[in-house]
């Protein structure tokens, strides 16, 4: 496997130039009304999808940008759309 990631600034690059930033969980929730469970769910819990997921990456050894991509965790290949065929 040699993961490649498409950086919006730098184009397709070797995956090791990037840092994985977790599943896309949406914006930080408002603090009011948060329970320990709901906060834990936001901070720690993952879907661990075997398939396509939307996720964050940072081009840490390149331009430094944060961005999202869709990737198939079964093949380690980036895909264009979440609905893309496996």
């Amino acid at each position: 496997m040699a993961l490649t990631i498409s950086c919006p600034n730098c184009g397709k690059r070797n995956g090791y130039e990037f840092r994985y930033g977790g599943e896309d969980k949406g914006p930080r929730p408002a603090e009011e009304g948060l329970t320990p469970q709901s906060w834990c769910d936001y901070v720690h819990m993952n879907n661990c999808v075997a398939g396509i997921q939307k996720e964050w990456w940072c081009h840490k050894n390149g331009c430094g940008a944060w961005f999202t991509i869709f990737r198939n965790t079964l093949t380690n290949l980036e895909v264009e759309e979440p609905e893309a065929k496996l």
Partner: peptide
């Protein structure tokens, strides 16, 4: 001209 890059910039909302 950096065609591949141009394509990406226009299609990505997150930066």
């Amino acid at each position: 001209q950096a065609p591949s890059v141009m394509h990406l910039v226009t299609t990505r909302e997150n930066l």
